[in-house]
């Protein structure tokens, strides 16, 4: 029973953190209709900014979260405005030139970070790292729990923002019909830039949450990009509830898979889910849960 409980808790906590990383991608995908392959690399940039803030300004990652998110919002906004956005609508040989551009950006960003910080693993030990709660034979790593709480708060705030504010509704409207949004007087370009910035900031928040738990190196983002991608497909484009439930499902699937099926299968299960969703539920969970 303790094993089941441990597996469940591990899955839920991890799933919450996956969700915040994925939600940025799902937003951008909703508005721009492209997979942003630079998403993971931008998350990694946020982690390095957090590292610098910790090492040079002594800010705990949970404090550094806010300045890091602001920095990444600005980086995302400018990147979209001056780079990815420019390719939009331009006729090229390859129809998905924006996707390729985001891939190139992701790789370039990684190399720049590698040149600045080397590929050495960077590890920080802020307060609470390695602290545990023991509960009925189960163990909860406290930074996981805090990370999960932060992630769910952000997901809830985002949900509220999208559903209840004019700006949020403009993001949704743009993602559903860009031209119609322009007829409504919405500056769709600016909304797209804003969404990209917001998505990037949320990815950075996900990265920062991971800082007290893991280690950092320039390629750290690879598995998270894939997971975000899976969750985006699983949850459906542009859906916050979808991303949260997708994150939880993936976290739980990985956790139960590695406990009961063998640890080498944990990650495989994510991709099996991905395939099943594409084959049998192409609209994602959004189709089931409404919005």
């Amino acid at each position: 029973m303790a094993l089941f409980g441990q597996t469940f808790i591990t899955g839920v906590l991890m799933g919450g953190i996956y969700a915040i990383i994925a939600i940025g991608m799902t937003l951008v995908m909703g508005v721009m209709k492209i997979i942003n392959l630079a998403h993971g690399a931008l998350m990694m940039v946020g982690m390095y900014i957090c590292l610098v803030l910790f090492e040079h300004a002594g800010l705990h990652p949970y404090v550094a979260l806010i300045p890091t998110m602001i920095a990444l919002f600005i980086i995302g906004y400018l990147l979209q405005k001056y780079s990815i956005g420019r390719v939009s609508g331009v006729e090229t040989i390859i129809p998905e030139s924006q996707v390729l551009l985001t891939l190139a950006l992701g790789l370039a960003i990684t190399e720049v970070i590698r040149v600045i910080f080397t590929s050495n693993y960077q590890i920080i030990h802020p307060a609470l790292t390695g602290e545990y709660w023991h509960l009925a034979g189960m163990t909860i790593e406290i930074p996981y729990l805090i990370g999960f709480v932060i992630a769910t708060i952000f997901v809830a705030l985002l949900h509220f923002f999208l559903a209840r504010t004019d700006l949020g509704q403009s993001v949704i409207a743009t993602s559903q019909d860009k031209d119609a949004a322009v007829y409504m007087g919405i500056n769709a370009e600016r909304i797209t830039n804003f969404t990209f910035g917001l998505g990037t900031a949320l990815a950075a928040a996900g990265g920062v949450i991971l800082m007290p738990l893991f280690y950092l190196y320039p390629h750290v983002w690879h598995p998270y990009l894939m997971k975000a991608f899976v969750i985006t497909i699983l949850g459906g484009m542009g859906s916050t509830v979808g991303a949260l439930s997708g994150g939880l499902i993936l976290g739980l699937a990985e956790s139960f898979g590695s406990t009961y099926w063998g640890p080498q299968w944990g990650e495989v299960i994510g991709f099996i889910i991905f395939l099943l969703i594409l084959l049998f539920l192409p609209g994602g969970l959004k189709r089931i849960i409404g919005r």
Partner: peptide, 20 residues
């Protein structure tokens, strides 16, 4: 006796079984 993916980030499911 089990193999695992070295790029995973959370080994607690496996370690729980080890403990058991």
């Amino acid at each position: 006796d089990s193999k695992y993916n070295s790029e995973a980030t959370d080994f607690k499911p496996m370690l729980s079984k080890v403990k058991a």
